[in-house]
């Protein structure tokens, strides 16, 4: 029964995609994202050199008026509940060393400003790029003598959201000159353009070639990641970037890699770079 439903869904998806190509072209919203009437976000940016698109756009522009409104007001944005939870975790001691994040880093508003805009970064010890989730786990193990968070643990999502939120409005900028970042960028790019799954789609099939069109009822964005972790109306919860990557790959009807594996870390490096210049929107609100 379930299989049959999935098959139908797959057929519908393909049919919808064809329709999207021929009929449903819709421009992104002609709108400015100003949070609480004071903080203007950059939702359209000039692409970095070598970028395939003419303009880098935030996914916010592809959402309906009602969804966009939720992100414009920090009170109405349900993601802010998780920012508050993250602040609580930041100040709570954990692990054998009896330390909290604040024990070493003090006020996050000062010490974490800019962090969310510049990760992933090269980690010389691990000899690979790491994202904020992995940086938190490194701190927990090395400095707090605490257990690393399991992938998508509620506290991992809340703390990552809190740390990224300290860079709200700052432009995304990954430093590809660190360590071997450039070759990870290349690997990520290869993944981005590789077709996969029973539906034979690459990231580019939807987010580069067809952004602005509809896949069935969904208005396809450029797939930028400047708002992650993102509050998704569908889950009514925070969704981490690697969870979203896995969801997208699953929807091509492919086997999906584990979170934080080389293939997904490389993809994070590359996709983050594609959003260069957009403001960090964490916690963004999406459908």
């Amino acid at each position: 029964m379930l299989k049959k439903t999935r098959m139908l869904a797959a057929v519908a998806a393909v049919a919808g995609f064809a329709l999207a190509g021929s009929y449903a072209v819709a421009e992104p919203a002609d709108d400015d994202l100003v949070i609480d009437g004071t903080m203007k976000m950059t939702v359209r940016a000039k692409p970095p050199e070598g970028h395939p698109l003419d303009e880098v756009r935030s996914g916010w522009l592809y959402r309906t008026e009602e969804t966009r409104a939720l992100e414009e007001d920090t009170f109405q944005n349900p993601g802010m509940l998780y920012v508050e939870r993250g602040e609580e975790i930041w100040n709570t001691a954990d692990g054998k060393a009896g330390k909290s994040c604040a024990s070493c880093h003090g006020e996050a508003a000062a010490s974490m400003k800019g962090v969310g805009a510049s990760f992933p970064k090269w980690d010389a010890d691990a000899k690979r790029p790491i994202n904020i989730e992995l940086r938190i786990n490194k701190c927990r193990q090395e400095n707090m003598q605490a257990e690393p968070y399991k992938f998508d643990h509620a506290d991992q999502k809340a703390l990552t959201t809190y740390i990224k939120h300290q860079s709200l409005g700052m432009p995304v900028s990954v430093d590809l000159s660190q360590g071997d970042m450039q070759s990870w960028w290349e690997k990520g790019k290869e993944t981005y353009y590789t077709r996969t799954g029973q539906l034979n789609l690459s990231c580019a099939s939807c987010h580069e070639l067809n952004n602005g069109k509809y896949i069935r009822a969904d208005h396809l964005s450029q797939g930028n990641v400047n708002g992650f972790p993102t509050y998704r109306l569908k889950q009514a919860n925070m969704v981490s970037l690697h969870n979203r990557f896995r969801g997208c790959i699953r929807d091509t009807r492919a086997e999906y890699p584990k979170a934080f594996t080389d293939v997904l870390m490389a993809l994070e490096v590359y996709v983050t770079w594609r959003g260069t210049g957009l403001s960090v929107e964490t916690p963004a609100v999406r459908q």
Binding site: F75, L81, Y82, R85, A154
Partner: peptide, 10 residues
């Protein structure tokens, strides 16, 4: 998630 925590704006 954590214990319900009300937020109020007025």
């Amino acid at each position: 998630m954590a214990k319900p925590r009300p937020r109020v704006k007025l």
